[in-house]
């Protein structure tokens, strides 16, 4: 029966298409979840750096640094990038050199370095998620509707000069 062929072909096409769509949808979900997780890690590292900066500021009675750290900790989402850049500038203006390493300085330098890594990874993962959202099929079927659009966290590189002595 020649009619049967058409049925088989249609069934096969439907199966392949369904598998592809399911896989794509899972991929979009995975990329969004990962970008969100990286965002939470970045948030935690921002907090850590601000806390370390506050400890250092208290130790040195550095009023401006302390204020910058507090503002960064309390900033509303829309003001946060500016507040974090401000804190980076304050830290860059702080004297972190010295032969005998002060634990508070070591903590600030380490927190900044880890923040730089977290920022880098977050940027990459957000880029991956955004490029998945731009795919025509994903847009057509609105596969990303369950996820908020990932946002870049646009701040300057927080690496401190005290770290530059290390390999770079």
């Amino acid at each position: 029966m020649p009619g049967m062929w058409w049925v088989l072909v249609v069934v096969a096409v439907v199966v392949v298409l369904t598998a592809y769509l399911t896989w794509t949808a899972a991929r979009v979900d995975r990329l969004h979840e990962r970008a969100a997780a990286a965002g939470r890690a970045l948030d935690a590292h921002l907090m850590r750096r601000a806390a370390a900066a506050a400890v250092l500021a208290e130790e040195r009675y550095a009023v401006e640094l302390y204020a910058a750290a507090r503002i960064a900790l309390d900033a509303e989402p829309e003001e946060r990038e500016a507040a974090e850049n401000d804190l980076t500038r304050q830290l860059r203006a702080t004297d972190l050199a010295g032969e005998d390493p002060d634990p508070a300085v070591v903590a600030v330098v380490a927190a900044s370095r880890r923040l730089a890594l977290a920022r880098q990874v977050h940027t990459d993962l957000v880029r991956d998620a955004l490029s998945a959202r731009r795919r025509p099929l994903v847009r057509l079927l609105r596969m990303s509707r369950r996820h908020d659009r990932p946002r870049y966290f646009d701040v300057d590189d927080p690496t401190l000069a005290a770290d530059a002595l290390r390999v770079s």
């Binding site: 935690a44 977290a118 990874v121 977050h122």
Partner: peptide
């Protein structure tokens, strides 16, 4: 490594 693990789990 730590950064990659954190970015997957969303914590520190």
């Amino acid at each position: 490594y730590e950064t990659a693990i954190e970015a997957t789990d969303g914590g520190v």
